[in-house]
């Protein structure tokens, strides 16, 4: 039985990475698919060597292979992580955490004053805080569910900027905005942690 060695696997990995397949979970699967096909051809008697068989396979299948892999956004995955986010809204951790954070954020807002530059900085800081978790755990490695969840977070916090000029403390609008942002932040934090745990358990990378 012919088996590809570590260098061959590394070569496929680098090739796919250079073909813009950046999500680790998708690339791992494609490496295995390509390697399995090459090994199968070798075991059927093709003795032209790894590089020639690999080149031939890529000419035949590259477009089909990278069709899905190089998309940073996938609507199905986005829908799935959004649903997970909505489910988390009802968890006790999010409810309890939101109350606690609301008190904290409200005091911070009052301390720094809503008109100041700190208020525009605040949403960005929260977004970066949530987005920083996978970077701390996985480094440069990207995963499809996390990548699509970051899209959701970015949309929300970018949207939030439009309301900042209308926030006058104290007003109903101010408290409603702060409540929504707090709940979103705590729920994002919980969802992100659960996604990181999901990948950490399955991929045993960290």
């Amino acid at each position: 039985m012919s088996k590809l060695n570590k260098e061959d696997i590394q070569f496929i990995d680098t090739y796919l990475s250079n073909s813009d397949i950046h999500y680790e979970d998708i690339r791992i699967e494609m490496i295995d698919h390509v390697a399995s096909e090459i090994e199968s051809r070798m075991n059927l008697g093709d003795d032209r060597g790894f590089y020639i068989i690999f080149k031939e396979y890529m000419i035949e299948n590259k477009s089909s292979l990278v069709k899905e892999g190089n998309k940073p956004f996938n609507s199905k995955i986005f829908k799935s992580v959004s649903k997970q986010f909505l489910r988390n809204l009802y968890s006790w951790q999010v409810i309890f955490g939101s109350v606690l954070c609301f008190w904290l954020f409200n005091n911070l807002y009052k301390y720094f004053h809503i008109e100041s530059f700190a208020s525009t900085f605040f949403p960005t800081f929260l977004m970066v805080l949530v987005g920083f978790i996978p970077i701390m755990v996985f480094g440069k490695k990207k995963f499809s569910f996390i990548g699509n969840f970051v899209v959701l977070i970015s949309i929300f916090f970018s949207f939030n900027y439009y309301f900042i000029p209308f926030l006058e403390e104290p007003s109903w609008f101010y408290y409603i905005n702060l409540s929504i942002m707090t709940v979103f932040f705590v729920c994002s934090l919980k969802t992100m942690i659960s996604l990181v745990i999901y990948y950490k358990k399955r991929f045993q990378l960290a």
Partner: peptide
């Protein structure tokens, strides 16, 4: 591959 993996990822999602 172009048909299989999107289908698998959709079912996983």
């Amino acid at each position: 591959e172009g048909a299989l993996y999107p289908a698998l990822h959709k079912l996983e999602a």
